[in-house]
Write a protein that binds this DNA or RNA. Structure first.
Lengths: 205, 205
DNA sequence: TGCTTTTAGGACCATACGGTCCTAATTTAG
DNA sequence: CTAAATTAGGACCGTATGGTCCTAAAAGCA
């Protein structure tokens, strides 16, 4: 695995995070990675799509190491870890001044309809993400109410975070994300055993 | 306001909902609206962007009439209206088998970073949407706990729905959206006066 | 030394796109 | 009837894009 590959992947990741996949041309990547030309690029990747796939994989690995890692910290209370994780998502978004977000949500929204290859890969990413949250919820079982649906709750957490990141990108205002993160933490806390009353849902059916 | 304009806008809206704005070419719109050629199109719209802006406006007006309308029904209990609204979003997504979603979220994700003109218009759309939910929450004040933050809650609702729609598009599974909608309703219900205990938030700060 | 991989750089291509321009037929309104 | 608006249709243009092909200089390795 040559070093140049990483260089290309890094440059591509930065460009894609900034402008999206479609708006990032191969020539842009070549400039960003300071390659000599097209042939140089195609010496390492057989197509732009392949590049995109590898960038996506890489993003998830980084996210798993840096963001998701806290979910597995054995010395911290599980529900506390979940709060820390939510904070880390907020912090990540803050780094770009609210402009970027989870790279998965961006790609998902951009390509889910148009590009099946990406869609399935992004689906897998979300599944792996959800699975880690499910593990944590399983671990936190003793502190949670008996009827907590880990699958449903894990999906809700991810959806709320992705939606929050999207809204924040549109509004360019970190307060948006912070407020939603706050509410999300409250919602999770309400699944604890110490939350005595879970109000009845008013369904319209 | 000629009839042909509407025809073009309808065709464009359908195509954009299906493939996104960038992936919808002017020629596609021309075919979809059965125009004779480019000049015919540019007789009605001065650019593709202008077309996009008008489609966005139209989508919001429709959404306001069809989706948001229930929020203003004076004969129904406010919080019940909110649940009905959430159901309507689920139903809307179900119509396309989970493939499409709120057209705003799609456009937002696709263009918020790349196209400032769209970004500000989408921001306005979300603001108007949030404002309608805030009004409803204000109306529901007597039934809500005193410390409910209407601004924060309205944003949370929209973010959760947009995130849910996004995840559903990726997963192509309506169960995703239904589960999140269920949890969202529960979260709203927990702001009611009848919800006796609001658990303490575990913040990590 | 030789052979392979990497770097360099340019020419080229088919396709697609947004947009302009021009001419002429057809329809609509006053 | 006449002028204006609409419909029709095609030629064009500049630009960008993903991708291929080819040649040749360096670098790394046996």
């Amino acid at each position: 695995m040559p070093d140049r590959r990483s260089q290309i992947l890094d440059a591509a990741a930065a460009l894609i995070a900034e402008h999206g996949f479609t708006s990032t041309s191969v020539d842009d990547v070549i400039k960003g990675a300071k390659l000599s030309g097209k042939s140089h690029f195609y010496h390492y990747f057989k197509s732009k799509d392949e590049l995109g796939y590898e960038v996506l994989n890489r993003q998830f690995e980084r996210f798993s190491e840096r963001g998701l890692a806290v979910l597995r910290e054995p010395m911290i209370d599980p529900l506390e870890r979940l709060n820390l994780f939510i904070d880390s998502v907020v912090a990540l978004q803050a780094e770009s001044g609210g402009r970027r977000g989870s790279p998965f949500g961006n790609l998902a929204a951009e390509l889910a309809d148009a590009h099946e290859g990406f869609r399935v890969r992004i689906e897998a990413v979300f599944e792996r993400w959800a699975s880690q949250i499910r593990s944590l919820l399983w671990e936190a079982r003793p502190q949670l109410q008996d009827d907590v649906d880990a699958v449903r709750l894990s999906r809700f957490i991810i959806a709320a975070l992705e939606g929050a990141v999207l809204m924040t990108r549109v509004k360019r205002d970190m307060a948006m994300l912070e407020g939603i993160a706050f509410d999300l933490k409250r919602f999770i806390a309400m699944h604890g055993r110490d939350a005595l009353v879970v109000p009845v849902v008013r369904t319209s059916e």
